[in-house]
Amino acid sequence: MTALQVSNLSKSYGEGNPALHNLSFEVREGELLSIVGPSGCGKTTLLKCVAGLVPATRGEVRVHGEEVSGVPEGLAVVFQDYGRSLFPWMKVGQNVEFPLETLRLPKAERQERVERSLAAVGLEGKHERYPWQLSGGMQQRVAIARALAYRPKVLLMDEPFASVDAQTRSGLEDLTRRVHLEFGMTILFVTHDIDESVYLADRLVVLRRSPGSVLAELVIELPRVRDQIVTKSLPAFVRQRSVVAQHIKDAS
């Protein structure tokens, strides 16, 4: 079943300044789709159109069959800039709980979800800390926990690990795979990092730039459960990574 359908999507900011041109792809239910492309290919714009944060100029986005106009229900976003996306005046627990208040969940259920999602990202017992008391990687885990607690059907991640160090990044990638398998939601993962896009994805879309449009689509043939060292030395990984790299190189 299709969770997310993007059809002939175009977006321009003003006359003659197209960011996206005639983009079409779909994401199946429970799938993790990576979108990879050079910077300036409109990845963030694409994600904002899907999230209903900015309106499309032409074409449409459907989430579970419903056309997106405004932010659809059951969708969560993890932004690249966790430092600005987490609210510094709320403690970690309050940050995670905040979106749940809008869902009108009873207090007990909210608490339970906060507990569970903080545990899922390995931040048990950090409720009372403020985000700025945590490291960058931990802050991004709080942002992921906040999205998980919301129990979205579709999770959008906008270069979420672009501003953490390499070590932390591997850990967060594995965390993403793990929660994807555990919670089973559909994930659209935007990145400019080729290794990351292949390592995480079930399927992958390569974008070209100016204006952003689909260059290639490929199914990633890797085991469901992955490991930074083992998976990345598999011949299949090495081959598909080269395919993606070649596509991006050809396009630029």
Partner: peptide, 23 residues
């Protein structure tokens, strides 16, 4: 980004004022 976050979680305007804008 803080405002966009609130919007992405469909937080209503009045609650965004109280919990995001005013703090």
């Amino acid at each position: 980004v803080a405002m966009e976050t609130a919007r992405a979680f469909r937080v209503p305007v009045h609650r965004t004022w109280w919990r995001v804008v005013l703090p």
